[in-house]
């Protein structure tokens, strides 16, 4: 795969065609044997967070910033079955206090997206994903940790309606995410109002739901969205405690996403803002990406 890739990337440089970068949460598909590689940079920061439901600042952290670069290839097995991979490198820093920022390769994830049903402008999609940690980062040094060291499996159902003449679309999805237990570098920890005398930590499972409204035309796309994600259970950050992986993290996020890809090269951008949450930072996030599409049919 990798060896032929270099050759094909070169070949594809010469070939313009309709571009369609896509994500695990949209109804856009790569055509058969088409590959789109997105390189993205993300910047997210917060200076307030919810300690349980209490919103507070912490002058020993100041503003917490998380940045990432990510490579995200999407490949069309057929025009109705796509595979998406992503691998981010993440680094964190705090503007105040003395806690050391962390950096490293985080978790690799893979998604299989299937267009299961099409009726007129309506379509129904099944998406399954999984991720495994790649880096050996510290999972419980929160909020500086870059990840939680758990394996995940996600099942998502996505419905889309597209009004073809105008390109207007509305997308809704809901997902259930399973998360594995994790191991931490300690003999015991406090969670759920008790002490567990073991180094294994149960991670609450998660769900998410989102609606998106936008316009998708040949070469460009713009949308606004609202996303809700939360754990199914978990405990809350206690007063003046540090966050911990078992926390029931919940957030509601609104944002905008846009893409401009007139030919095989394009750009995308995303802005998100957490309007409400529990046990999470109230982050504002920006992502910009470069998209590059390759057609393996040639």
């Amino acid at each position: 795969m990798k060896t032929s890739l270099t050759f094909l990337i070169v070949a594809a440089l010469l070939t313009p065609f309709a571009a369609k970068a896509q994500m695990p949460h949209d109804a856009i598909y790569m055509g058969k044997k088409q590959l789109c590689v997105a390189g993205m940079y993300g910047y997210s920061s917060w200076n307030q967070y919810w300690e349980n439901s209490f919103k507070r600042e912490n002058f020993n952290i100041g503003t917490l910033t998380t940045q990432s670069v990510m490579v995200m290839p999407a490949y069309g097995i057929s025009k109705r079955v796509n595979v998406i991979l992503s691998l981010p490198y993440v680094w964190t820093s705090a503007s105040a206090g003395n806690l050391m920022g962390q950096r490293g390769v985080q978790d690799i994830s893979a998604w299989l997206k299937v267009k299961a049903l099409v009726v007129g402008g309506f379509s129904l999609h099944g998406i399954v994903g999984a991720s495994i940690p790649i880096g050996s980062y510290v999972p419980d040094f929160m909020p500086m940790s870059i990840g939680m060291q758990c394996r995940t499996a996600t099942a998502r159902l996505l419905a889309n309606y597209k009004h073809t003449p105008t390109g207007l679309y509305v997308t809704a999805h809901g997902s259930y995410g399973w998360r594995s237990n994790i191991k931490i570098d300690r003999d015991a920890y406090q969670a759920d109002d008790r002490v567990y005398n073991v180094n294994q930590v149960r991670m609450p499972n998660v769900y998410d739901a989102a609606v998106r409204l936008g316009v998708l035309r040949k070469g460009w796309q713009t949308e606004v969205f609202a996303e809700r994600s939360a754990c199914l259970d978990g405990d809350n950050i206690r007063r003046n405690d540090m966050p911990f992986p078992t926390n029931n993290m919940q957030s509601t996020l609104v944002g905008w996403y846009g893409k401009f890809q007139p030919r095989h090269i394009g750009v995308n951008a995303r802005v998100g803002y957490v309007v409400d949450g529990m046990n999470v930072g109230q982050s504002t996030s920006y992502t910009v990406g470069v998209l590059y599409q390759i057609n393996f049919n040639k």
């Binding site: 299989l112 299937v114 099944g126 399954v128 999984a130 499996a153 996600t154 099942a155 259930y176 399973w178 594995s180 237990n181 567990y196 005398n197 073991v198 294994q200 930590v201 149960r202 991670m203 499972n205």
Partner: peptide, 16 residues
């Protein structure tokens, strides 16, 4: 696929 993911979805617990 969904079935397989559900099978994998056995809720993990903490075994002390």
């Amino acid at each position: 696929s969904l079935f397989l993911s559900v099978v994998a979805c056995k809720e993990p617990t903490i075994d002390e």
